[in-house]
Design a protein around this nucleic acid. Structure first.
Lengths: 193, 193
DNA sequence: GGTTGCATGTAAATGGTTACATGATTGT
DNA sequence: ACAATCATGTAACCATTTACATGCAACC
C-alpha cells in the first residue's frame, strides 16, 4: 500500500518516454514537484527493477561525450500495473512543516529571527505563486509532457490548486505576521512579562 | 540540520509536562497534527535519550492497573537546547500527496473511482474545516496546553492557517471536480477518443 | 465478545537519502 | 577558474515506521 518510486515512475512514463534524469527533474521542478519527491538513488534502481518485471523497456541512445541516455518506455503490462496501482490504498496526504512548528514558538525567539522566518516563507510563497501564475508553466518549454489534452488538464488542475493554496497561505501570513512578531522577544526590553 | 524527534518533544515540553503517550496524541490529534508527525517507536527512545543528556527529567506516577506514567519535564538546559534548535536550518516544508498524483491520471481511471477519490478528499477537508472552525478546538478540552497566552496565539495562528488552506483547497476542488470527472473513463462508452 | 483507550517499550525491517565516482560541456 | 547541466549508477548509512509484547478498563 502506498505508492512506491517505481509506480511513480510508471505514472510519468504513461505520459511520455523518459530517462531517469528527466523523471527526477519532473519530480523536482516539473508538474509533480510540489507533491511528490524522489532521488536518483531511488529512481535508477526502481527503473532497473521495472525492467526486470518487464513493465518498461529501454532503448539506449549513444551520446558522444556523455553516458548513454537510457530512454524508458512503458509496456502494456506496465500500463496495467499502473492502473492497478491507482486503485491501491493511497498514503494519506502529509504536510510537514518545520517552519510552522517553529513559529509556534515565536515567544522563544528574538524578533529578528521571527521576522526572518516569515520573510523567508513569504518569499517562497511568492516565488511559487509567480511560477504557477506565469505562462512559463502553462505554455511549458514544450519538452516533456506538454502536448496532449489530458495532461494539460491534469497539470492545470494541479497548478490551479497550488496557486489557490499558496495564495491563501501567503495572504494569511501577511495578515497575521504582526501577531507572531508581537509574541517574539522584543529587542532591548529583556524583561518579558 | 532539520529537527529530529527529540527536538520536537522538547518543544512540546516547553509548553507543559507530558508523557510520551500525550506527546504522541498531540502530534496526531492536537495542535501539531497537521504539520508534524512521529510514532511511539521514535518518541519513547527520543525521550530516553533526552534523559541521558539531562535535557528533561522524569517523575514516575504509579497507576493501579496500568504501566507507570512517566511524566517528563524540560530542564533549563533543555530549554536552551531547544532555543538553539529553533535556530537550525529547517527542513523545507514538504507536502506529499498521492491523491493529487493519482488525480493527474484521472484519464486512466473509471469515473466511479475518480468520483470516490474526490468525495474522499472533500470529506477530509470538510472534517478538518469543521474541526478547526469549532470551539472544540478553540476552547479546547482544557487539558494539555490550553492555558497561557502565547500558546493560544500560536495555536490560533496554526488553526487559522489550516482553516484558510483547507478552505481554499476544498473550494478549488468543488469548483473543478467536473473537469477531473470529465477526463475519467466514462461508463458504458468504452471507446475513448 | 470485540474494539478502543490507556501506557510503555523494543527489534527488525524498511525504504529511502546522502554522498560518492565519473566526465565532458557550457556558461560566468 | 568554477559552477552548473547533463547523465548514470552504487553503497553505506539513516531515522523512522511497523509490528510485536503486555495488560487492564470501559464501552458497545
Amino acid at each position: 500500500m502506498a505508492l512506491n518510486v517505481g509506480e511513480l515512475c510508471l505514472g510519468v512514463l504513461t505520459m511520455s518516454d523518459a530517462t531517469g534524469y528527466e523523471i527526477k527533474k519532473l519530480f523536482e521542478e516539473g508538474h509533480f514537484s510540489h507533491f511528490i519527491a524522489a532521488s536518483y538513488g531511488s529512481i535508477y534502481p526502481a527503473l532497473q527493477s521495472l525492467m526486470k518485471q518487464e513493465l518498461v523497456t529501454c532503448r539506449q541512445e549513444s551520446q558522444e561525450k556523455r553516458p548513454d541516455k537510457k530512454i524508458y518506455s512503458i509496456t502494456p503490462e506496465g500500463r496495467n500495473a499502473f492502473q492497478r496501482a491507482l486503485n491501491k490504498d493511497l498514503a494519506p496526504d502529509t504536510f510537514r512543516s518545520e517552519s510552522l512548528f517553529v513559529m509556534m514558538f515565536a515567544h522563544l525567539m528574538p524578533l529578528a529571527q521571527v521576522s526572518k522566518l516569515i520573510d523567508g516563507r513569504l518569499a517562497f510563497f511568492d516565488q511559487a505563486i509567480a511560477l504557477f501564475g506565469s505562462d512559463e508553466c502553462s505554455s511549458e518549454e514544450d519538452g516533456l509532457l506538454a502536448n496532449s489534452n489530458w495532461e494539460r488538464s491534469g497539470a492545470d488542475y494541479a497548478r490551479g490548486l497550488g496557486l489557490a493554496v499558496y495564495t491563501a497561505e501567503a495572504a494569511y501570513l501577511r495578515a497575521n505576521r504582526h501577531m507572531l512578531e508581537a509574541l517574539a522577544i522584543q529587542p532591548s526590553s529583556e524583561a518579558a512579562e
